[in-house]
């Protein structure tokens, strides 16, 4: 029993989110919406934490991968799902669910492929090249999407509208739980000790037989995949997406969550995602000062608690041998 504890916890969270999802009609729609935002931000932050926190690389373009996932999933739903319905056994909640899952996976895989293409050349180098490359990639994705034709599949500067609202509490939190599980298990395994080794000292890691490039690319591709999934969820929650929604400021928001939560601390990052998303809602009346508040928060944190809310420790606590 004990060896499967982590899987059981995962299953419980997934079932719990299914339960809450079924009862979602009974909750206030406004609070449900905030909860879904929290979940999407948890996926974004935990996946970025794998790259920035655990592996010590600095990606500033998480929103770009979210955009790729959002567009990939939305276009799949808009173009393909009507055609897929008969194959999946006709219109019905099961067929819709499977089609949505496929759409999310398509979005995630598109983002992962982009992550690989961006990561392969820039992660071969040591140093801060990734920050510059991802910053540029974020702008490239946004500008390309903005310059597509208004009647094409990408919808041009106005983006896509009329995406079916398929995102429910279940989808968001099941995927958030899977994301936490995947990142946690990866990092805490012996294989995964390579990630912090690369972060702490890349030269020493190489000398210990660790293939540093492969580790960095793996972290980046997995991080991009989950960013893509969160993009798909976001698109099917808001029902409209536009290139402007995935600009640099969105990437910056995620970086702030990771830094406040504590680089390399999954639990800390989850707490920060909750706190900052809720804070965002409270600051809605002071929209123009939002970045001001975040920046001050960041500066204060850097001075008072540079290691983040929680120090880094593996979320899946390993047995302590005597």
């Amino acid at each position: 029993m004990k060896r499967y504890t982590t899987q059981i916890v995962l299953l419980v969270v997934v079932l719990l989110s299914l339960g809450i999802s079924v009862l979602s009609g009974k909750f206030d729609a406004y609070y449900m919406d905030i909860a879904l935002n929290v979940g999407i931000n948890i996926i974004l932050a935990v996946s970025l934490n794998l790259v920035n926190g655990h592996t010590g690389q600095f990606s500033l373009g998480h929103a770009a991968f979210m955009a790729v996932g959002a567009y990939g999933a939305s276009i799949f739903t808009l173009e393909m799902s009507a055609r897929l319905m008969p194959l999946l056994g006709g219109p019905g909640s099961f067929a819709t669910g499977v089609a949505f899952l496929l759409a999310l996976l398509v979005g995630g895989l598109c983002a992962a492929v982009c992550g690989w293409l961006v990561g392969m050349p820039s992660l071969r180098l040591r140093g801060d090249y990734l920050a510059i490359v991802t910053l540029g990639f974020n702008e490239i994705v946004r500008v390309i999407l903005q310059n597509t034709s208004g009647d094409g599949v990408f919808g041009g500067p106005l983006g896509l509208k009329g995406i079916p609202p398929l995102t429910t509490f279940f989808w968001v939190f099941a995927i958030a739980a899977i994301c936490v599980y995947v990142v946690g298990s990866m990092v805490s395994s012996t294989y995964g000790r390579g990630f912090p080794a690369v972060r702490d000292d890349e030269i020493a890691a190489g000398s210990m037989g660790i293939n540093t490039v492969r580790y960095k690319v793996t972290a980046f591709v997995v991080g991009s995949f989950f960013a893509g999934l969160s993009g798909g969820l976001y698109a099917h929650l808001r029902t409209t997406i536009s290139p402007e929604g995935f600009n640099f400021l969105k990437s910056f928001d995620v970086v702030v969550i990771v830094i406040l939560g504590g680089m390399g601390s999954t639990a800390g990052v989850i707490i920060a995602a909750i706190v900052l998303t809720v804070l965002n809602e409270f600051l809605r009346d002071f929209e123009q000062y939002r970045m001001l508040v975040f920046s001050i928060l960041l500066i204060v944190m850097m001075i008072v608690r540079p290691q983040g809310l929680l120090p880094s420790f593996p979320i899946l606590n390993r047995k302590k041998s005597a």
């Binding site: 995964g192 000790r193 390579g194 210990m208």
Partner: peptide
């Protein structure tokens, strides 16, 4: 443990 990564039979 980090130095034993290259001898692992199991991957990610």
């Amino acid at each position: 443990r980090a130095a034993m990564v290259m001898h692992l039979k199991h991957g990610i």
